[in-house]
Amino acid sequence: MDLQTILSKYPPQPQYLIEMLIDVDDATEQHYVSEDELRTIAAYVGVRDSQVYSVMSFYTMLSTTPRGKYVIQVCKDVPCYLNDDFNVLKTIQDELAIGIGDTTPDQLFSLELTACIGCCDEAPAMRVNHETYTNLSDEKVRSILESYRSGLL
């Protein structure tokens, strides 16, 4: 979906800013909102670039810098931690050889931490883009990553 199509879904009002930004982030392979897109959106809803940037920089789901095709977000909060016997984060870091906040050189994966995603009854959990994966085990994490890598997911 291109930017104009996204914008045309919403009335040109600042209250729809966050909705538009999420859509743009989703529609972009690299999951971010570019400077040009940001300026276009600001003009569309009639606010300043600074006001949009303020919003962009506040919410964790939004990014002003390019990310991987698949953004992995690992829950770091207590209920997941208590059930995370094998260490989800370490497994992913082993597999992808990147640190938190980094993107793999092939631009396929970015690794981030997330606040609780409400899957504490099936902890530990993580998200890849908008898919949620729960009851994670070492093998499960590796196989999920492999599926994305091979294009199965």
Partner: peptide, 19 residues
């Protein structure tokens, strides 16, 4: 004018222009 805004959050919040 809205040149300066609060950017980011928490301990990393800054007051700055866009970008």
């Amino acid at each position: 004018m809205h040149v300066l805004e609060r950017m980011g959050r928490g301990h990393n919040m800054d007051i700055a222009p866009a970008f």
